[in-house]
Design a protein around this nucleic acid. Sequence first.
DNA 1: CCTATCTTGTGAAGGATTTCACAAGCGGTG
DNA 2: CACCGCTTGTGAAATCCTTCACAAGATAGG
Lengths: 206, 206
Amino acid sequence: MQRISDSTVRRLSLYLRLLEEFQKKGVLTVSSEELAGRSGTTAAQVRKDLSFFGSFGKRGLGYEVSKLVGKLREILGLSRTWPVVLVGAGRIGSALFEYTDFRKRGFEIVAVVDADARKVGKRWKGLSVRPVEELEDVVRREKVEIAILTVPVDAVQDVAERAIRAGVRGILNFAPTRVKVPKGVALHDVNMAIELEALSFELSQS
Amino acid sequence: MQRISDSTVRRLSLYLRLLEEFQKKGVLTVSSEELAGRSGTTAAQVRKDLSFFGSFGKRGLGYEVSKLVGKLREILGLSRTWPVVLVGAGRIGSALFEYTDFRKRGFEIVAVVDADARKVGKRWKGLSVRPVEELEDVVRREKVEIAILTVPVDAVQDVAERAIRAGVRGILNFAPTRVKVPKGVALHDVNMAIELEALSFELSQS
DNA sequence: CCTATCTTGTGAAGGATTTCACAAGCGGTG
DNA sequence: CACCGCTTGTGAAATCCTTCACAAGATAGG
């Protein structure tokens, strides 16, 4: 199969969200045009994105919302639950923990670990924050494949390597620094500072 | 001037961060090769990225760290302070408020507003959370050009429009939904759910 | 001052992604 | 059942981005 570009995947994720909204409103069928309108892209782009995975629409009609929702979930790997470990129980970590969107999509935080002894033992909605030393145990025990890292910059590389050695295959990194991971491990960064700077760049241009 | 791609801007922002690290370590000069190594790109890419804005290096030597730091700050519009308004004093909002990286880069949160009466009046490090009704006042009074939105999905479009009418030209949106903005207003999304889903996609592929 | 070595800056080539444009399929209507 | 309006799926074209490859500038050493 051809390699799918990152931007395509991001858009699929966006389409899914929009489709779920349509679904909630009781809309049964939707055209690439309508999807494009709400996702800030073009109808052709929507069709091409979907076409990498099959033909899900009906000519003259558009896409059946519930069917496409199902297909997209499947494509994105969301038709299962992903156990996730959250490393770092600071402010961002706790905000993410509360973030209901994750759970809704099948990402379940099964453990929270932190290096700070003062945070260890705190109860977060039925979970107790564990010492970072238990990271490997948790990953193995709960078959965790995804780790969310909200730790300080200096700690990130080490924590990432330990998680990977224990079996993690995907990392979502919130620390504003580059993490090196071996091939075969997926890494995505969420870097708010970079986004702000991109904004500042644009504003300075005009 | 030629349009600069988003990926170039992001990389510049990354280079800046790396250069500041070099600077802290006392390194005086750096080659495109070294910068590339740490930023996960290629030397040619680094040089091309920089070349859009001028020639900052010396052949045979590389780039003078402090000079390049200065140039990048200038290019990215970081050689000034940007007053920022934070809309939404929930968990994510408060995490961002504490996030020291922003301030370090010249983004100063000059006001926090929220629609929830229970949050209004709380003191955050010398700032008191104001009712969202004061959004326009604050923007005008403090000449705010950037708004960070951490409000619920349903509120985001309305709040964005109000901010823009009052003078905001750039928006950093954390709500997992698309915001429509008029041309001339810069919009960047930080969408953690999408990143997680991209991760899940990659893991499902292999 | 000549040579060797290093590294930039940049056209040109190559690759990837997006947009265009249209044949083909679907359903409704007369 | 033939025609019409609509919308998909997709090669081909256009655009955008990255990599290549090398001339040219800079320094150091003899």
